[in-house]
């Protein structure tokens, strides 16, 4: 599993590998000053980072120029959330890594985001279904995290909360318009709610990292967010004259442990290839 690309700080990179190897005892806190909940925060940061990357694909592809701008703003907000967390994670996982070490030099197995955010973007309805769920989740998540025992996490959450409320508002307005618009838009929006379904349960899964972070009162147990998130989405779906689908024959698993779906590899290849082609370069 070792990286093919030279890193600026090989020893830091090696210890990072040990730290985040899936299934390994991740939070031993071996390095001096290390805090054990780095992996939990990496999950939050990676969700925001990967979704920002997907939303960035909409620039020049949105249904109206005004919407190019709106999706660009949301991508910038999420990118900002990730950038707010990565350097802090680097300071508490003992590796001293910077934001680009995390974003550009990590292999797929070391990313901790959920599958929802890495899926290909689909049509506009697919994007709005995903944004509705993800932003509803983020609103509940960041509301809870503003009370985090870690001041940095609470600060990031406080700033993010304002942003994700706007994202939820944006998604809600569009889901209602597509659901209660034309026959075609209703059909597409309903289909989008079905498409996104298998990737939702994972948002609320416990893993070792989230249990530990919750025990330390730094993080929040994902399952505790479930009902409030569903309630938020359900209100919008009802207003949109759509049906909230229930039950899926399969569900995604393992994103938090570095087990990803096929689109993730292509996403990283595109995102990382220039940085990795020029080892040690600054931009």
């Amino acid at each position: 599993m070792s990286d093919h690309v030279t890193s600026a700080a090989p020893s830091a990179s090696e210890s990072a590998e040990r730290e985040s190897l899936p299934g390994a005892a991740e939070n031993t806190g071996a390095a001096p000053g290390a805090k054990p909940y780095a992996t939990y925060l990496l999950g939050l940061a990676d969700d925001a980072m990967v979704y920002a990357q997907r939303l960035g694909e909409w620039m020049t592809n949105a249904p109206q120029i005004e919407e190019d701008m709106a999706l660009g703003n949301i991508a910038l907000d999420l990118l900002g959330q990730a950038r707010g967390l990565y350097p802090y994670i680097g300071s508490i996982d003992g590796t001293g890594r910077g934001e680009d070490d995390y974003a550009m030099l990590r292999d797929e197995r070391r990313w901790h985001n959920v599958h929802l955010v890495e899926q290909e973007r689909g049509d506009f309805a697919d994007e709005m279904a995903r944004l509705l769920w993800f932003s509803a989740y983020q609103v509940e998540l960041h509301t809870a995290l503003t009370a985090s025992a870690d001041d940095v996490v609470a600060g990031v959450a406080g700033k993010a909360l304002k942003e994700v409320r706007y994202h939820l508002d944006h998604a809600s307005l569009w889901v209602v318009r597509l659901g209660d618009g034309t026959e075609e838009s209703h059909r597409r929006m309903q289909a989008a709610l079905e498409h996104v379904l298998p990737h939702l349960a994972e948002l609320f899964d416990h893993d070792e990292a989230s249990v530990l972070a919750a025990d330390l009162e730094v993080g929040v147990l994902p399952s505790t967010l479930h009902d409030a998130v569903v309630a938020r989405v359900a209100r919008v779906v009802e207003q949109a004259t759509l049906t909230l689908p229930d039950g899926s024959r399969w569900r995604s698993r393992g994103g938090r442990a570095g087990i990803h779906s096929r689109p993730m590899g292509s996403l990283l290849a595109e995102m990382q290839h220039i940085a990795r082609s020029h080892p040690g370069a600054t931009w």
Binding site: Q64, E66, M69, A70, G72, N73, D169, H170, L173, R177
Partner: peptide, 20 residues
């Protein structure tokens, strides 16, 4: 000015177009 289907979206589009 800008284009929007209704007042709610017009307000949000205005935010993104004119107050970045």
């Amino acid at each position: 000015s800008l284009h929007a289907p209704d007042a709610e979206l017009a307000l949000r589009n205005a935010r993104d177009v004119y107050t970045r």
